[in-house]
């Protein structure tokens, strides 16, 4: 059975996981949103075609997405130390999580925005809308449902990345699962942490889909 210290450890781990996930997601979106928009509008058929810029951004995003996360954590340790002051623990883990998630989320945002009907954009242009107006009042609101679904996927991915960071002292539930469950053969600890991660992802998924469906006005009712 789990000891009281173990239970406390797991509770703290859950809090650390939620902390890492929430802040990583928020910071990632802060960078990924402008990047996703830039990827869309600088395309050849975009609102502000800049082929050179588009190619560079595209290459950066692909590069970021192709580096395995566990390697990335180690590679960016100097940056992590610079920003967080140390290279281990939940706060420090946010740095590599954001670096890994930004290209991925930028792609999700890009594909959501590309779903918006070109005709609607053209209609806005015919009314004399400027590019910022089209982005803020047409692209983002019309892609809202898809963006929310994307955010759900992104958050789920960040949770699993944060668990992976446990392998190098990242803290949170993943850390506990590796230290106690894997290294010390405490199978029940591993089971509990895995179940907790599954529950967190599940709740997130349900909430995300609910919001997406509820706010989608394209569905007849």
């Amino acid at each position: 059975m789990l000891t009281e210290t173990m239970i406390n450890e797991i509770i703290n781990g859950t809090i650390a996981t939620l902390y890492m996930t929430i802040f990583s997601t928020l910071f990632s979106y802060l960078f990924a949103f402008p990047l996703g928009i830039a990827l869309v509008i600088t395309r050849k058929d975009g609102l502000y075609p800049l082929l050179g810029v588009n190619k560079v951004l595209d290459a950066i995003v692909n590069l970021g997405r192709s580096i395995p996360f566990i390697i990335l954590i180690v590679v960016v340790i100097p940056i992590t130390k610079l920003i967080a002051g140390k290279s281990y623990g939940p706060t420090a883990t946010i740095v590599p999580l954001v670096i890994a998630a930004v290209p991925f989320i930028a792609r999700l945002i890009e594909s959501s925005l590309l779903e918006v009907d070109n005709g609607v954009i053209e209609a806005a242009q015919s009314m004399g809308a400027s590019i910022p107006t089209i982005i803020l009042k047409v692209l983002i609101p019309e892609a809202k449902t898809s963006l929310i679904v994307g955010a759900t996927i992104a958050t789920g991915t960040i949770i699993s990345y944060s668990a992976m960071a446990g392998a190098v002292g990242g803290g949170g539930l993943g850390d506990i699962a590796i230290r106690y469950g894997y290294i010390r053969y405490q199978t029940e600890v591993m089971m509990v942490t895995v179940i907790l991660l599954v529950i967190i992802v599940q709740i997130l998924q349900i909430i995300g889909m609910k919001i997406a469906t509820k706010t989608d006005k394209r569905i007849r009712n």
Binding site: G119, V120, E122, A123, S126, M127, G128, S130, V138, K217
Partner: peptide, 21 residues
Amino acid sequence: IRKLRQNIGMIFQQFNLLMQR
């Protein structure tokens, strides 16, 4: 030109309404 377009209405085959409004 954007200012001038505000004085020209346009309608389309596929209506092109904002679906979320």
